[in-house]
Every structure is written in structure tokens, then in C-alpha cells.
């Protein structure tokens, strides 16, 4: 019990540290003194870099990292599938389709995230309809998600095959995950969305624990499984949709952060949700700092960093740890 509080505290401190690291490194490096002047002042170059560019972007990486990690950890639980991630139920295909359409039509700044969000939700809505038409259950959801993902990806490929190359490049960058483009107000809205989404999921932590035993056993323990599944499905979809709209498709965070945390502090969702949120935020915050600095002045898509850094880290972790449970 004490260890759990200690770990939570450790994550909070690590998040603060990542925030500062990401503030100093990334793009033009600034010294610690410049950082302090920038934070205090209300004009000048330091002020602009810190308050207008870096802090919003760091906040975005924290929101998205937390959102994806929590969405993934809850979906793994309710779908009873350790390979589930935020995009399992078809949201990424729909969002990619929305973005491709936006780029093709030349819709700019605000239109792109909106169409991505709309595309993601359209896809999720169709999955929901398909599942409801049959008996609403885990297997119909997964099946619907896979089908819709495939359908939308194929439509994206269709557009790619007939569109101009420069438009394809914009979409491709988005598909690899990109935290650079978002507008400050949009970041705030998306942050609120993700925060309240995570809060609602946390309120349902006991239900999620029990749903991992299967829909039928959950009914035996007093949970209206179909109703609860629907609600959790909608909330995780909204969180993922918000993340995708402002940052593209960032892989890995939602799949492996929950595994890592589950392995460290156990499968109970009361701790798992909070710790995953913190760890996801730390991970994406640091990954984005790397993406900004590693081949400065060119920026890498953050999804590439999460994939490479995360993959290497987990191979190392897998080989080092004595008892590794995928589940």
C-alpha cells in the first residue's frame, strides 16, 4: 500500500521534471537563466518562445499522452484483450479519412482537427450501430472496429492513389503524429475534454475491474454489462477522438504504457488509471522534446519517436524483468 503512494509521488515528480526538461530543450535551446526571465516577463523573445510556443505544446503532449494511455488501459480491460489500444475500435481510420478529405479540399487550420474529430466519431458511431444491431458485446465491438478501420484505410489509400504528391505528404505527416500544429484555444478545449473523460472513467474503476471477468460474470456481480460497456465505449472514444484531432495518430503510448504500469502496480483500475495517465503524459512529453531537438532545425514526427524509443525501452525491459506478464 505504501509502495503505491510512493510510486504515485514518483510519477508526479517525474512529470514535473519532464515538463522542465521539455521547456529547456527542444528547438532553440535556452539557458536556465533565460528560462527564468522568460517565465517572469510579459514581452520579448524569451517570453514568446516560452509562453506562446513551448508551454502550450508541452501541455498538449501531456494531455494527449494521458488521454491515449488511459483510453488504452480502459479498452484493454473492457475488451479483455491485452492487445487492445485506443485505435482498436476504428477511430484512427475514420480520423485519417477526415484529415485526408480536409487536406484534399484545402481546408486549413481549424478545419483539419474538426474533420479529424468528425471522421473519428463517424467511424465509432458506425461501430456502435453495427454492435447494437447484433447483441452489444465485446466481440461485436472488436469485429465492427476492425471492419471499419479497414474500410476507412482503404478509402484513404484510394484518395492517395489519385491525389497530388504534396497533399499526400501533409496527410502522411499527420498520420505519423504531430504535436506542432494545434491552436492554443483548441489545446485548452481538448485538455478539458480529456481531463473530464479520465475523471468519468476513474469513477467507474470498480466496474472496469469486474468487466475484465467477462460480461456474464459482471452481471452476476451486479453490473448491467451492456449499458456500462456502451458508456465506457463512448467515453474512451471521445477521449481518443479529441487526442487524434489535435495530434494525429500517435502509436504505442496507448498500448504499452498500460502494460508497463499494470506490471508495476497491479491490475486494479483505481491505481491503473491514474498512474497510466501520469506515465503516458511523461512519456509523450519527453518523446516530443526529443522529436524537436534530435535533428534540429528539422522536426521529427513524434509518433516515430514514441515507436522507436518505446520499442527499444520495452525490449530492454522485457529482457531485464524476471516476471513479465503480458496480461
Amino acid at each position: 500500500m505504501k509502495n503505491k503512494y510512493f510510486f504515485f509521488l514518483f510519477l508526479v515528480i517525474a512529470l514535473a521534471a519532464s515538463f522542465i526538461i521539455s521547456l529547456i530543450f527542444g528547438g532553440t535551446p535556452i539557458s536556465f537563466n533565460e528560462l527564468l526571465t522568460g517565465l517572469k516577463s510579459s514581452t520579448g523573445i524569451e517570453y514568446a518562445i516560452i509562453w506562446k510556443i513551448r508551454i502550450p505544446r508541452i501541455m498538449l503532449s501531456i494531455f494527449v499522452g494521458a488521454g491515449l494511455a488511459v483510453s488504452g488501459c480502459v479498452l484493454q480491460g473492457i475488451l479483455r484483450n491485452p492487445l487492445a489500444e485506443p485505435y482498436t475500435l476504428g477511430i484512427s481510420g475514420g480520423a485519417a479519412f477526415g484529415v485526408t478529405v480536409a487536406v484534399l479540399l484545402g481546408i486549413g487550420s481549424l478545419g483539419l482537427p474538426l474533420l479529424a474529430f468528425a471522421g473519428g466519431l463517424l467511424s465509432v458511431f458506425l461501430v456502435y450501430l453495427i454492435a447494437s444491431k447484433k447483441y452489444f458485446s465485446v466481440s461485436t465491438l472488436i469485429l465492427g472496429g476492425v471492419i471499419l478501420s479497414f474500410l476507412f484505410s482503404s478509402m484513404v489509400m484510394l484518395i492517395f492513389s489519385i491525389a497530388r504528391t504534396d497533399k499526400i505528404h501533409t496527410t502522411l505527416l499527420w498520420l505519423m503524429g504531430d504535436l506542432s500544429g494545434a491552436d492554443t484555444n483548441l489545446i485548452l478545449i481538448c485538455g478539458l475534454f480529456i481531463f473530464f473523460g479520465i475523471l468519468i472513467l476513474f469513477v467507474f474503476n470498480r466496474e472496469i475491474d469486474i468487466l475484465t471477468l467477462g460480461e456474464e460474470k459482471a452481471v452476476f456481480l451486479g453490473i448491467d454489462s451492456a449499458k456500462t460497456l456502451k458508456l465506457l465505449f463512448v467515453i474512451t472514444s471521445l477521449i481518443t477522438g479529441a487526442c487524434v484531432a489535435v495530434s494525429g495518430i500517435i502509436g504505442f503510448v496507448g498500448l504499452l504504457i498500460p502494460h508497463f504500469i499494470r506490471n508495476l502496480t497491479g491490475p486494479k483500475y483505481s491505481t491503473l488509471i491514474i498512474n497510466s495517465a501520469l506515465a503516458g503524459a511523461i512519456f509523450l512529453c519527453l518523446a516530443d522534446a526529443i522529436a524537436r531537438t534530435v535533428i534540429y532545425p528539422v522536426e521529427l514526427p513524434v509518433g516515430v519517436i514514441t515507436g522507436i524509443a518505446g520499442g527499444l525501452f520495452f525490449i530492454f525491459y522485457l529482457l531485464k524483468s524476471k516476471e513479465w506478464e503480458i496480461f
Binding site: 491485452p82 475484465t212 452481471v219 452476476f220 456481480l221 451486479g222 453490473i223 448491467d224 486494479k268
Partner: peptide, 22 residues
């Protein structure tokens, strides 16, 4: 309601797979 029922009736199903290590 389902919740009210679970206060007085408990069920042991034939198969129960628990995917996570509680």
C-alpha cells in the same frame, strides 16, 4: 435490478477466464 439481484443471488459460471493478474 441487476445490482439488487446480485445482493441475494450469486453465480459460479462453468468457465471463468480472468485475463489480468488480480
Amino acid at each position: 435490478s441487476v445490482k439488487e439481484t446480485a445482493k441475494s443471488i450469486a453465480v459460479l459460471p462453468q468457465i471463468l477466464e480472468v485475463p489480468f493478474s488480480f
